[in-house]
Amino acid sequence: MRNAFVEEITKISKKNKKIVILVGDIGYKLYDDFKIAYPKRFYNCGVAEANMTTVAAGLALKGFKPITYTIATFNVYKTVEQIKVDVAYPNLPVIIVGVGAGLSYSGLGSTHHATEDIGVLRSIPNLNIVVPADPSELRSLLKEIIKSKKPTYLRIGKRGEKYIYKNIPNTKIGKANYLVRGKKICIIGCGNILVNAFYAIKKLNKKNIFPSLVSMHTIKPLDTKLLKKIFKSYTHIVVLEEHSEIGGLAGAVSEFYTDNNYKNNNFLKMNIGNKFVLKTGHQNHAFQKLNLNEKQIMNRIERFIKK
């Protein structure tokens, strides 16, 4: 996903001369093409994320469209006050990119797991939160984010993610995308982990179970229009995310649900729970440990539908 991000932003920056990239000493050789093409618009800010975030805000005051880029944990937890006070409060068009979302860096240990970032940021006013499902959705959303001119947290994976979309889709901030249309059961999810559900659905179809799959790529603002329809049309709702059970997509969906006094749906939340994830090895092992791999998702949905 990060390669798709860099390729796309390099392309966009040819026309959009206001884009400036700030990185926190990450992405070895990743930005070589960008640096050669736009040497005045790339700055390695070192391992000093708080400063990087506020520098971005200062550039935005000068009319630039700055992007800060580093590992999601560092770009959120070390900078949350800068994001609140310097970016979101004055409503400046800074894009904060968190790379290695969720358990992408599983093997590096909990210091590198970005599994609370959505929860941490979701309560900050003015800030949009965007979590693309695959590299194609990311390419499309990136253009929309730049157009939106809003402070945005963009949560992306690492590399080698599988594709769900065959082509680059049309996207709109705050408007979710249907990936699979089925009936009775609807999986609402965000991020890389949607791939697991996508393939789980293929297996479920063979068992005559036809879940829908929705990429809720914008966590904020939430696509409440579509949620309303989903709550009416489906009896069983699954919320899937590579995030803590607290504060993420499940939190956002639940808040909307209770705010509107819905009551006729069954819910299954699939996430990493409320814990530090230890001794995992690769991301796939982490998924297995957390009951989130393709097969486990399939089994859990099969059991859920019998309720």
């Binding site: 520098v55 971005a56 805000a57 200062g58 004055p90």
Partner: peptide, 30 residues
């Protein structure tokens, strides 16, 4: 920041110098 003549909403300490760095970097680019 909403006040005429005020550039940034300060009050949380340790932000001002980074803000100014960003603004001055913008000048350097321009």
């Amino acid at each position: 920041i909403k006040i005429n003549g005020v550039l940034v909403s300060s009050g949380s300490l340790g932000h001002g110098l980074s803000y100014v760095a960003g603004v001055a970097l913008g000048d350097q680019i321009n």
